[in-house]
């Protein structure tokens, strides 16, 4: 019970802290797409894949005192940072979640910018299309972000790199 909540906490425990809801959303989506067992439902939104279910789950974890949310003013907006609380760590200790390659992948993602993760998650959202079609999608749907061809290539390589991490660790 509450296993899906525990998985999100496990993700936060793995990286220590995530700054920005957008980043958090994209990290969980990317993790789901590279086959980690997250079951939150994602839709394509203005800023790429987004899960209302995940937003609510994070709110629940904050209300329960398992996550610490810090609201910071950033320009005309607010930004939120998240980390596990002590009672969150205790709660997590009730679960044996066997996701051994998660930490490495999430730590890597956490070092990337939210903008880059938006691109990576958008590419993953359209991964059934050909590379050319994906590029076209990025240029039309993300025209305001002005991604370059080089960034798109980097994002493809990054996805491969993440996937190879998962595979490598599965083999070991």
């Amino acid at each position: 019970m509450l296993i899906e909540h525990a998985k999100i906490m496990k993700a936060l425990a793995a990286v220590g802290e995530i700054v920005g809801r957008k980043k958090l959303q994209k990290m969980i989506y990317i993790a789901k797409k590279i086959d980690f067992p997250f079951y939150e439902k994602f839709d394509f939104h203005f800023y790429g894949p987004y899960s209302e279910e995940l937003t609510l789950r994070i709110e629940e974890l904050c209300n329960l005192g398992f996550l610490h949310e810090v609201k910071e003013k950033k320009g005309g907006y607010y930004q939120y940072r998240y980390m596990l609380t002590e009672s969150g760590e205790e709660f997590l200790s009730h679960y044996e979640l066997d996701m051994p390659h998660l930490e490495d992948c999430l730590r890597d993602m956490n070092e990337q910018s939210a903008r880059f993760l938006e691109l990576v998650s958008t590419i993953l959202y359209f991964e059934d299309l050909s590379k050319e079609e994906i590029k076209e999608k990025v240029f039309t749907l993300k025209s305001k972000q002005r991604y370059t061809e080089e960034e798109i290539e980097q994002a493809h390589s990054y996805i491969e790199q993440l996937r190879s991490k998962v595979k490598k660790e599965v083999r070991t």
């Binding site: 939104h45 279910e53 609510l56």
Partner: peptide
Amino acid sequence: LVVDSSSDLPYDFYRPGEEEERL
């Protein structure tokens, strides 16, 4: 014996959120 949470349901209410979270 089942725990059911509000996040288990497919409805949401309005929140402005942070920049570039959702429109």
